Simulated scan of single mutants.
Amino acid sequence: MAVATDLNPGTSPVHDMTAVMNMGCILFGLTCEQALAGATINGAKALGLDKRKGSLETGKDADFVVWDIDAPADLSYQVGISLVNKVVIAGKIAYNA
């Protein structure tokens, strides 16, 4: 299952992916690991981008977020708090907290 938001004012005003992951866990019974996979590799696969994005592997684009968390479950449970430490796009730091 892919977990995402299209961030539009008509049907999806949510921009926070951790809130979307939380809803996946609460509303659809996903585990935190399933919600994370849904927001990464499964989301990339749904868009036909899984050969280049969605996981950290040799040969894939180096697009990723470094989170200030203790466990993956923190991404689904700590809603409304920015836990982003760094954002890396194409191998270059785009944001550094």
Rank of each mutant, 00 (worst) to 15 (best):
M1A: 14
M1N: 11
M1P: 09
A2E: 10
V3F: 02
V3A: 09
V3W: 00
V3I: 08
A4P: 00
T5F: 01
D6P: 03
D6A: 05
D6V: 06
D6C: 04
D6R: 04
L7I: 11
L7E: 13
G10R: 07
G10M: 09
T11V: 12
S12K: 02
S12D: 15
P13W: 02
H15M: 11
H15N: 08
H15Y: 08
D16N: 15
M17D: 11
T18E: 01
A19C: 05
V20R: 04
V20C: 11
N22Q: 11
G24K: 02
I26F: 09
I26D: 11
L27Y: 11
F28I: 00
F28Y: 13
F28E: 14
T31H: 05
C32M: 06
E33H: 08
A35T: 11
L36G: 07
L36S: 07
A37G: 02
A37K: 15
G38W: 02
A39L: 04
T40D: 06
T40G: 03
T40W: 01
I41D: 05
I41E: 08
N42G: 00
L47G: 13
L47S: 12
L47F: 12
G48N: 10
L49K: 15
D50H: 11
K51H: 12
K51P: 00
R52Q: 14
R52S: 14
G54E: 03
G54K: 02
S55L: 04
S55V: 01
E57H: 02
T58C: 06
T58L: 12
G59V: 06
K60D: 10
D61Y: 07
D61I: 04
D63W: 01
D63K: 03
D63A: 08
D63M: 05
F64E: 09
V65F: 04
V65S: 10
V66W: 02
V66G: 12
W67I: 09
W67A: 11
D68T: 08
D68A: 14
I69Y: 03
D70N: 13
D70P: 00
D70M: 03
A71C: 13
A73D: 14
L75Y: 01
L75S: 03
S76F: 00
Q78E: 14
V79W: 00
V79F: 01
I81R: 14
I81G: 01
L83F: 04
L83A: 07
V84C: 04
N85I: 00
K86F: 01
V87N: 00
V88F: 02
V88G: 07
I89W: 03
I89F: 03
I89D: 05
I89Y: 09
A90G: 15
A90V: 07
G91A: 07
K92M: 10
K92P: 06
I93K: 02
A94L: 09
Y95S: 12
N96H: 13
N96S: 15
A97Q: 14
A97N: 15
